[in-house]
Design a protein around this nucleic acid. Structure first.
Lengths: 140, 140
DNA sequence: ATTCTAAGTGCAACTTGGTTGCATGAATAT
DNA sequence: ATATTCATGCAACCAAGTTGCACTTAGAAT
């Protein structure tokens, strides 16, 4: 039983053509992709609404997580299947190619913020690193 | 000469009805506001495109800075006039009321990230704190 | 104070990302 | 093999944001 089969089963998702394609594309890409980018990589006819719904569905059950790019457009990346709620909270966004990478990071302690801003009930700290990625740097 | 007058003068912005209103609203609010929220607070007729343009203009010269809310919609907050390029890179977003606060913060050292991810040319670190703000917490 | 002109506004039309409702079609448990 | 529930396709819609162009106005020059 493949990883995909297990994930789909676990979350009661039917295995459809589109969902398989989306999962494979995100797996292969290993980075955040927008609706538009995924669309281009699906090589059969489908309705854009279905893709929106597939993405929300995947997000809802935690297979993928949403990252907003610098324009505020939703991108999605696979959540590492290590634990159930380890959605990646640190991302790198390349200012040249707009590529979005999940980064695992350990400097930031949410407690630091909670202690400093006691009036705020802080639940999450999200970090976005901006700059130029390896590929784009080498192209210059 | 008021702060507004000085800022407008410095950036060669003509003092128009709409621009004055927008500046005052953002000053008074002391938090991030969206196009829609600002619109509601302007008490005379104006074109929404003009407001979009006012906001981009202000942002371009650095009077305000853009913060995307959790839905990816642009919000704008006054940049503290202390220095020219001290745009606030840490924000708190309330999950209840969607209020956006600028937070000044000192834990995060960009160098930590630069050292860890040497292949990435990291230029900026943006932090978003999520949780419940003081007001909303007290309401419960 | 009047004139001039670049900068700002208003309007119309458009684009893109995302959502909703409903009828049709397909995956899977029985 | 069938039933039922879930997923898809289609049409229509919404909100945020952009562009082009004609008109208006702030403020500099006279």
């Amino acid at each position: 039983m493949s990883e995909m089969d297990m994930l789909f089963k676990r979350h009661n998702l039917r295995k459809t053509k589109l969902r398989k394609a989306v999962f494979d594309i995100l797996k292969e890409a290993n980075m955040g992709l927008s609706h538009q980018e995924i669309s281009k990589q699906v090589h059969f006819d489908f309705d854009r609404v279905s893709l929106f719904r597939t993405l929300s569905q995947f997000e809802k059950v935690g297979i993928i997580h949403k990252i907003l790019d610098l324009q505020g457009v939703a991108n999605y990346a696979l959540t590492f299947p290590i634990s159930d709620n380890n959605k990646c909270l640190t991302h790198f966004i390349c200012e040249k190619c707009s590529g979005i990478l999940c980064v695992d990071e350990e400097f930031i302690k949410i407690q630091d913020f909670q202690l400093k801003y006691k009036e705020l009930a802080i639940k999450d700290v999200e970090i976005t690193l901006k700059g130029i990625c390896k590929k784009c740097k080498n192209k210059e």
